[in-house]
């Protein structure tokens, strides 16, 4: 089987169209289960009481904010190296979704921080580097929008994305490298996670749901990108239902 065949926009567009409803349903079902478990079934925390339930959206969105960035930068690198159109479109589609996940992580974190820490925001290494991530996403989008030629715009933005990759390990290790107010990782540490299974399950289920959500929306956005970028191709006419 030749994978590159699916990278052709003409093949990708209808294939993505078929996949989107499946991903959308899977997202809806997973997040419903995760939310019910997180809000109704998971027990109260011994220290933080009910307030810890913000974790069930805060942590998965923070993970996604970093994962989407890695996907975006990888797609950008592939586009730079092989000039593949679809990977350019993937990088473009990732940016607003990644920015959204970053924003969710920052907002929910601030709302959680107020009652627990006593402050919405502090300039510690974890919070600052996550804010830098938001600016990287916004910078990527602004740079791409400022250049008219889509191919050159994609290349310039890809370089920015690659430079910004340095921020990802900084975010992850900030809580270990520096004294921060933010607590260290609970799940991704080498020893067993320090979250009780009854609280870990809703967290992981929501994380799966967020991955599926990402897949759904990134395909939706990429399809629109295909239409715009390939509008002069003859097969587009068949898709929009007007014979040239």
């Amino acid at each position: 089987m030749n994978i590159t065949k699916y990278a052709a926009p003409v093949v990708f567009y209808p294939l993505a169209g078929k996949l989107i409803p499946w991903f959308a349903w899977a997202t809806g079902i997973t997040l419903t289960i995760g939310l019910i478990m997180g809000l109704f079934i998971a027990p109260t925390d011994y220290q933080q009481g009910e307030s810890y339930r913000i974790m069930f959206i805060h942590v998965p969105s923070a993970w996604m904010s970093m994962l989407v960035y890695v996907v975006m930068a990888t797609a950008g690198a592939v586009a730079l190296a092989w000039k593949t159109r679809l990977s350019e479109m993937l990088a473009t589609a990732c940016a607003p979704i990644g920015a959204s996940f970053t924003l969710i992580a920052l907002i929910t974190g601030a709302i959680w921080g107020k009652p627990m820490w006593g402050a919405y925001w502090v300039w510690d290494a974890r919070l600052t580097s996550e804010l830098v991530l938001l600016f990287l996403y916004l910078g990527f989008m602004a740079l791409q929008a400022s250049i008219d030629d889509p191919r050159r715009a994609a290349r310039a933005a890809a370089i920015l994305a690659l430079v910004g990759v340095i921020n990802i390990p900084i975010i992850h290790f900030s809580v270990e490298w520096w004294n921060t107010l933010h607590q260290p990782a609970s799940v991704s540490k080498i020893s067993a996670p320090s979250i009780h299974p009854s609280m870990l399950w809703p967290l992981l289920i929501n994380a799966v749901g967020f991955h599926l959500f990402f897949a759904t929306t990134v395909l939706m956005r990429m399809r629109t990108e295909v239409l715009i970028r390939e509008r002069h191709k003859s097969w587009i006419a068949d898709i929009v239902g007007v014979k040239p």
């Binding site: 109260t44 307030s51 959206i57 907002i107 959680w112 939706m220």
Partner: peptide
């Protein structure tokens, strides 16, 4: 929510708003 209702619901509400926006806007644009 044991006194944390306004925090929990505003956090979940903000997240839901951003997520829904991420479905509605791409669909409209398409």
């Amino acid at each position: 929510m044991g006194g944390y209702g306004k925090f929990i619901w505003s956090a979940y509400g903000a997240a839901a708003f951003i997520i829904i926006l991420n479905v509605v806007l791409p669909m409209r644009r398409h």
